[in-house]
């Protein structure tokens, strides 16, 4: 069953289109990673799914309803990000109490245990917390609300590495015990990919690809070896990245639709094959300009 259906979704701010004819659907009880470069439209899309902003055109349905200004969708979903507006007059413990009144599946025990584990002071106020502590508190809300649709938009901003690891582990454990539909956006695919079932890659406001994370890992292959040989194999293929390694050695990243025999033949001819990490695949697929950062400096280099 699809929890989310998005068809030709467009969102414009003035003359710029943040989302352009975006279409995808999300199945129930999957953890999906939302990946994209800065400004790709991830946050706009997640805010539309949560019902916070109205699309310019296109169709969005969440639990078969239009999410905008919809109390049912609000009660069944939560969007955790670093701009969560929480009342400044309430203490942290009062915030937890209020959340428990709103979310019917609220897990009091989990909230309290995480609260203690991360050493929060019940009398503190949300606006006085440090960046990392604020993010940590917000993720407690996200986990304990146990919403059928739980959305985390860059939830780990400001967290140190130990807390990030704890959060991902807590997310997985609670998901195993209580499966639900989770969307998790992050700039660090390598940190979250093991948790994910699917990846939705957004580029320039549109869906670039949507596939199981295991397929993404074998999407591309790296070839390193004598330049003429490597060039021969890259002919007629989409070259995701290439780099000269010395005068006669070349490294290229190609889409991996080679047969096992071809790969064997490459190896025998002296080409070194390497896997390309999922996060590198995403970076290559969404690179906006030809070439790389080196090209910015190219005319300054002394020859």
């Amino acid at each position: 069953m699809n929890i989310i259906e998005v068809n030709n979704l467009t969102k414009s701010y003035g003359k710029t289109n943040a989302l352009k004819q975006l279409s995808f659907s999300i199945e129930e009880n999957k953890i999906t990673g939302i990946i994209g470069r800065n400004g790709a439209g991830k946050t706009t899309m997640l805010n539309i799914l949560a019902g916070f902003i109205k699309p310019t055109s296109g169709e969005v349905s969440v639990f078969s309803e239009n999410p905008f200004d919809n109390l049912f969708v609000s009660s069944q979903s939560i969007l955790v990000d670093d701009t969560m507006m929480l009342p400044t007059s309430l203490s942290l413990s009062e915030l937890l109490k209020e959340a428990s009144r709103f979310y019917e599946q609220w897990d009091e025990t989990l909230a309290q245990r995480l609260f203690d584990y991360f050493s929060f002071d019940p009398n503190q106020h949300h606006d006085k917390l440090s960046k990392g502590k604020k993010s940590t508190f917000n993720t407690i809300l996200g986990l304990a609300s146990r919403c059928p649709l739980t959305i985390f938009d860059e939830p780990t901003i400001g967290m140190d590495e130990a807390v990030r690891k704890d959060f991902y582990r807590a997310l997985l454990k609670d998901y195993l015990a209580h499966p639900r539909t989770i969307l998790l956006s992050s700039h660090h695919l390598n940190e979250i990919e093991d948790l994910l079932e699917d990846v939705l890659l957004i580029n320039d406001g549109a869906t670039y690809l949507h596939m199981p994370v295991s397929e993404l890992k074998s999407y591309a292959v790296g070839l390193k070896g004598p330049a003429d040989l490597v060039k021969k194999w890259s002919r007629g293929r989409i070259n995701l990245s290439s780099k000269n390694l010395g005068p006669s050695q070349l490294y290229v990243v190609l889409e991996n639709d080679f047969s096992a025999e071809s790969l064997e033949e490459m190896k025998r001819s002296g080409i070194e094959l390497s896997s390309v990490s999922s996060s590198d695949v995403c970076v290559y697929l969404t690179s906006t300009s030809k070439g790389g950062i080196d090209d910015v400096f190219s005319d300054r280099e002394t020859s």
Partner: peptide, 17 residues
């Protein structure tokens, strides 16, 4: 698949695969 997911800290769908 759920025990493996917990043991190896991975998505249960990956373990099932």
């Amino acid at each position: 698949q759920y025990q493996l997911a917990e043991m190896f800290n991975i998505n249960p769908a990956t373990a099932a695969k």
